[in-house]
Amino acid sequence: MEKLSRIFGRIVQAVPPVFGVILITFLLTRALPGDPAVFFAGLMADEDTIAQIRAELGLDHSLPVQFLYYLRDLLHGDLGNSLSTGRPVLTELMSRLPASLELTLAGLLLSMAIAIPLGVLAATRPGSWVDHLCRVLVTAGVSLPTFFTGLFLIYIFYYLLGWAPSPLGRLDFLYLSPPQVTGFYSIDAALAGDWEVFWASLRQMILPAITLSLFALAPIARMTRAAMLAALSGEYVRTARANGLGGARVIWVYAFRNAALPVLTTLGMVFSFLLGANVLVEKVFSWPGIGSYAIGALVASDYAAVQGFVLCMALLFVVVNLFIDVVLTLIDPRIGLES
């Protein structure tokens, strides 16, 4: 019961950031240089048309009233229409979101799979080669521009070695996309039992996922190492050792479970970085996600689409942080006891 009310409290705490995000996105839309009505009406419009469009867009009201209209539209899932395609922005974003999520999650999982064991090893063997490797990776990882690493992975693995497929999109044109269930090509193909498409989609994904994970590796490894060092110097670890428990048990059960909490918190921040880096990686690999869509919209001055994209990313990030907080509440037995 205690935990349930805690979780509810967390959800309530997420309301102000969501409101702030919506407010800022709204202000960004209204801070457009010049008169949006003139912009939307086009070059050939006369005074009447512009006035009509202004009324249609609700721009003849005061700013607070406009904000209320904006909120109402959001509640109906209306993010406006994309200027270049004429389709609703929400539909466009939703059709591309799975591609971005699949790539981001693949990158996150890959970097966790490498960084967490690396951080633990570095903390348990300070001064060894693992520790030095960890330090080099951490310093180099934060210095690497994602778009640059991506390009050079393409150069090495596609141009020089020929191991990777051409870096264009989610699936080679030889294959048809699998029947849509989750929107994740790899999972959909596996569900459909189409292993050929499954491997093809994995092959397309591996270079961009490695690019993202190289970028996310550094903060996770750094945090894991620091948290493990702190946990290993704890009195409970000394007690466990004194009681004769085995090394692996002490490390993974006693120390790591305590170190997992700050690492999990860091994951939220890493996810934010990844959402940003994703835009660049999608451009490098022509990945048809919402990042590529936003870049296209930026080039075409398609403001509704850009605003929709910013809002969508921010809400996604808020939800991920909320999720991590809830998980923390569930797995940390101390939460709820201290109060």
């Binding site: 969501v18 702030g20 936003a294 605003q307």
Partner: peptide, 24 residues
């Protein structure tokens, strides 16, 4: 505090994209 929390609620690179896109 609220102001900086709101900025931090955005993926930062994405916010920068939005700001540049709208301000010019």
């Amino acid at each position: 505090g609220r102001m900086s929390d709101t900025i931090m609620a955005f993926p930062l690179f994405v916010l920068a994209m939005g700001v540049v896109a709208t301000m010019g």
